[in-house]
Design a binder for these strands. Structure first.
Lengths: 225, 225
DNA sequence: CCAAAAGTGTTGACTTTACACCCATGC
DNA sequence: GCATGGGTGTAAAGTCAACACTTTTGG
């Protein structure tokens, strides 16, 4: 009976919506095992990390140069045999990124960091495919029961942008009259005196998220369509 | 910089409803740290355990003689300093027990295993209080969005029993007309040709859970009141 | 016949869904 | 003036919440 110590790692599924597509951030592995395959950003929990979440944030920053992000613990995977190097227990995290932040990725060395559409992923290292599927489920629930959508949008956005986030995450279209009615009635949007001009057609009004009002909603708000 | 290995443990919050009270299973610690304090049943992940969940099941059986139980992963706690023995990452689980199973506990050596009402817990070891609070939140959600209530009931139960489970978990009373109407309309209860006689008053009809019908419900059923 | 818990319906308020056209802008 | 996406209202169906009394049994 072997007594190698069990190791703990963190992996993060970082979502963003770009051009009406739901995407995640992957890094290309530089070493074996699974050298040259794409994998979730992550790494070993370090004794210096004061919390596990902090370790996930640290690894995300180190590997992709993305920082200051909404992080939420997802699930811990620890089946025997999921890592050829030995017994590895992985705590997975969900991250939500704003389109604003996306520029940052470029500054990490050009090589192996990229956004991939969730609907068209490459082959992934380890059991990372399973982790992504779990995260995808979670974000679908989350967007209906929380204000998660606003973590995927820049400060100012149009109602169309907001609807596109819902449609990208849920993977289906939503009636635009009902969508707008619902959000406007909820009162969690601050109407700005600005518009966004995208082409030769009517400009769209910009809104921002009214976090205060959101917090004061009486019941767990449900944005389900 | 120290290099003791990080250790992984599992802890389980095992719920049952008895006499309209929500209770959890605790064990009294026999060794330091926190000797003689009550704690969640659990222990170290072993290299032989093929899954982490299996480790939780094993520890629950070893320490409380409770087996064959619904288990669900809750959350992983890994803050620095939460265990005086070093860096310990704990994967916590939720278990739901049927009143049937409760007899089993007696067979574990009389000493240190007991049911405690969630509303009146003793001082707990480590950060187990926090884990219990997390589990309590989770079971409240779960009972409204899943068939979890039936994992807390014997095979045959009255509508009153079912309502008592909801009331115990949610910590509030529910209108009995609305409650019955809702469940009977849902069609997940099988009406039996038996009644339960509890005293000198009208006997109550017994029901069982129709898992088949439940699986076929079109939308995530919501038992919220 | 009494005590105790089992069982039963209706109404009004609100929410949800389905559905199609006009508006404002740049070119 | 046309192409493009922005923006708007209503009616019917369904769901939810509030509310009080009758029934059945054993003793």
């Amino acid at each position: 009976m072997s007594h190698e110590p069990i190791k703990v790692t963190v992996d993060t599924v970082a979502f963003a919506v770009q051009e009406a597509q739901l995407e995640i951030l992957l890094v290309k592995r530089k070493h074996d095992p699974y050298k040259n395959l794409w994998a979730l950003p992550g790494g070993f929990l370090d004794e210096q990390d004061t919390t596990v979440e902090q370790a996930a944030a640290r690894e995300l920053l180190e590997e992709t140069n993305v920082g200051n992000v909404y992080l939420e613990q997802l699930f811990t995977f620890g089946d025997k045999g999921r890592d050829p190097r030995g017994r590895v227990v992985t705590v997975s995290y969900l991250a939500l990124l704003r389109q604003d932040d996306l520029e940052l990725k470029a500054s990490s060395d050009a090589s192996g960091v990229a956004w991939w559409p969730v609907m068209d992923l490459p082959k992934l290292a380890f059991d990372h495919r399973r982790i992504v599927e779990y995260a995808h489920q979670r974000i679908k629930y989350k967007i209906e029961y929380s204000a998660a959508a606003f973590s995927l949008l820049p400060e100012k956005f149009t109602l169309r942008d907001l609807q596109s986030v819902y449609e990208a995450v849920l993977g289906r279209t939503i009636d635009n009259r009902n969508f707008r009615k619902r959000f406007l009635k909820l009162g969690v949007l601050k109407e700005l005196d600005e518009t966004s001009q995208q082409g030769s057609f009517r400009p769209a009004r910009l809104y921002s998220f009214a976090e205060q009002e959101f917090e004061q909603l009486p019941d767990r708000p449900v944005f389900s369509f």
